[in-house]
Design a protein around this nucleic acid. Structure first.
Length: 277
DNA sequence: CACGACTCCTGCTGGC
DNA sequence: TGCCAGCAGGAGTCGT
């Protein structure tokens, strides 16, 4: 599921249920995701109050506190991860790897492909950003500092194609394979064009296109935020009709041209040969 | 530094 | 119907 919008929708679903809650217990079933889930969480977390649910890129950050001791639970959903609130008596399924036991329910993390991450960073909330996985994260595309000017300058020495460049989380966070294609479609820019050969004027179009693509997706998920976290995640995420993604050989909804599928950096890319140059 | 290839893992789909 | 190759919304590491 998770690109930035899905993670943000997930965060918004978690926040009202989690903030203020005291963690009663922890269950670790799969020691090894992308990294081992720290066994120490089983003793660190019980008794902790969740004081905030934040997002950095595609990482969820649960700030925790217990009598002055602070730390942040870092969760990444990888390709196939999801978080659900479930009742105590729902037996765990095959890929349910981790859970927080709360007062009236369980927050359960499932991830079939196990590309996800559950880690712990001790210290006050601000120190979470110092974790090696987070310290190198790029700019937030929905922040006010993400401007055409910023992107144009940042990309000056990037000669690779624009689409995989936009997906580099050390440059800009949160733009995954779907929204990279969709944003470029909205902006009318070919995914094959070298990043540093996109004109300044076209970045003025691309940056708002990225912002609108992401925020439209959040808004679409937002109509069923509760459902998203409480059910199996199908509800919110796919309500946006894709312009090009997964529409190979179908007519472009804007110009009637044909949507083509190509491969870049090992990932599929979709674009309209008629209106993206 | 920047880039592409490779890697981790399971599950589903499409073609035969 | 069954089998298998290929692909799936991420991202770190390594070699060039």
């Amino acid at each position: 599921m998770p690109e930035l919008p899905e993670v943000e929708v997930c965060r918004r679903g978690l926040e009202p249920e989690l903030v203020g809650q005291v963690i009663q217990g922890v269950v670790i079933r799969a020691p090894k995701l992308r990294h081992e889930i720290p066994p120490a969480l089983a003793t660190l977390l019980p008794g902790c109050r969740v004081v905030a649910v934040r997002r950095r890129g595609k990482y969820l950050l649960l700030d925790c506190e217990r009598r002055g001791v602070q730390g942040t639970l870092i969760i990444h959903l990888g390709m196939s991860g999801n978080l659900r609130f479930v009742p105590f008596d729902l037996p765990p399924a095959k890929h349910d790897h981790f859970e927080l036991v709360l007062a009236g329910q369980i927050l359960r993390f499932a991830d079939p492909r196990r590309f996800g991450v559950v880690l712990w960073q001790p210290g006050p909330p601000a120190s979470a950003e110092c974790h090696p996985l987070l310290a190198t994260q790029g700019i937030e595309p929905l922040s006010e500092t993400f401007t055409a000017e910023w992107l144009y300058e940042a990309i000056a020495r990037r000669s690779g194609p624009i689409k995989p460049t936009l997906m580099d989380s050390h440059l800009v966070v949160g733009i995954g394979n779907i929204y990279a294609s969709e944003s470029l479609f909205r902006a009318g820019i070919s995914p094959l064009r070298a990043a540093n050969r996109v004109s300044r004027a076209r970045y003025e179009i691309l940056v708002p296109a990225i912002r609108e693509t992401l925020s439209d997706a959040i808004a679409a998920g937002g109509s069923s935020i509760r459902d998203y976290v409480h059910s199996d995640g199908g509800a919110g995420c796919f309500q946006i009709q894709a312009g090009v993604y997964d529409r190979a050989n179908q007519p472009c909804l804007r110009c009637g041209g044909v949507v083509r599928q190509i491969w870049q950096a090992g990932r599929s890319t979709y674009y309209c040969t008629g209106c993206q140059h």
